[in-house]
Simulated assay, not measured.
Amino acid sequence: MRLFQNNGLSRGFRAHRRETAYRNFAAGRAQFLDTRFTASHILLPVLTDSPDAFYTNGDDERLQLLWAKENNLRTDDLEQILLAQIEQHRTEVFYNLDPIRYSSKFVAKLPGCVKKSIAWRAAPSGNADLTEYGLVVCNFASILENWRQKGCNVASFFPAHDPVMDSYANGRAEELDVIFIGGYTRHHVKRSQAMRAAASAPGVRARFYLEDSRLTRLANALAPLPVLRSYRHPEDIRLIRADPVYGRDAYAAMAKSRMVFNGAIDMAGEDRGNMRCFETPGCGSVLLTDAGHYPEGFVDGETMLVYSSPEQIPELIGKLMKDEKLATSIAQAGHAMVKERYSKALQWTKFQELI
């Protein structure tokens, strides 16, 4: 199977990597893969450098223009470059993690060598059209149903345990009690309430690595302006805020904390299973997360710890701070579970079954 996997970069990660220099396309791609950003979603043949697998970030202008220059393609149009890469690779299966940028109109332009097109999309995404894809996949049942109602063929598919996490789990050195890694906007009302509750736990050593919205960053810098007040971090969160971390840096941060706090946003309803659910136990920390419908193997009190309301969070944090035996038991069981049930090998087998 000649596999082509395309990805897209988040705004925060793009800013984080802005100064990174690429010597050539191959070196730039290797540098990116080594960061382990979104590694839970990157398929095994890409990570093992299979000759039949091609990977790129189709929205990374610097990387894609290098490929175009090296292959004498005289264009700076990212769509044309991506199509040329697919054609040169003689792709049979196109797996796209950035389908809003490269939607049905793009699929209609794919060369004839492509026999199957699959899109990962874990959000409803308004009026986006993905019906030309042969399959839309993610691990949220309610979101898949939304895409099915829009006329897409859908199937369940999961993130996987990145084997690189094991070295972080084996070299843990707890410096903090609880951390949070993720986005923050004023629209994440439930998450914000839960974060404030976590920050208020007595005696807790906490740090929140936040990818803030543009207006939140502006509000924090210009606090006196009343019009921006609602975008500003609450004082208790601002005191423990740190810059966002990604990939290996996130792995290292999780390996230095007893527990990682997780809070879903509203788009997935009661479904749960964002990347942090897989990364946290993968790095040997306790997943402290909100109640909902979790994938198989995620069991409250055994492989994770669940809160039903913000009021419960300080008590649960205190419990894990005091009971090292309990925290170790949950962390170890969670780590063993994701390694066994959500391995890269099983993810790749499942993908082949979808094909």
Rank of each mutant, 00 (worst) to 15 (best):
M1V: 12
F4S: 01
N6I: 04
N7L: 14
L9I: 11
S10I: 01
S10D: 06
G12I: 05
Y22M: 11
F25R: 07
G28Y: 07
Q31F: 12
L33N: 10
D34Q: 13
F37Q: 14
L44W: 05
L47I: 01
S50Q: 01
S50M: 02
T56D: 08
G58I: 03
E61T: 13
R62Q: 13
Q64T: 05
A68C: 03
R74N: 13
T75L: 04
I81S: 06
I86Y: 12
E92Q: 13
Y95E: 00
Y95R: 03
N96V: 04
P99S: 11
P99G: 13
R101D: 02
F106L: 12
K116H: 10
A119F: 07
N127G: 11
L130T: 06
V136W: 11
F140M: 09
S142Y: 00
L144K: 01
E145G: 02
K150Y: 01
D162G: 09
M165I: 03
S167H: 02
V178R: 01
G183V: 05
Y184W: 15
A194C: 15
A198K: 10
A199D: 04
A201F: 11
V204Q: 06
R207T: 08
L210H: 04
L210A: 14
L210Y: 12
S213A: 13
T216E: 06
L222C: 15
V227Q: 13
R232D: 00
P234D: 08
P234W: 09
D236A: 13
I237K: 03
R238Y: 13
A242D: 12
N262F: 05
A264Q: 10
I265Y: 10
D266Y: 13
E270P: 07
P281H: 05
C283R: 03
D290Y: 10
G292T: 04
Y294I: 11
L316V: 01
L320W: 03
D323Y: 03
S329D: 11
G334Q: 04
M337H: 05
K339M: 13
L346K: 15
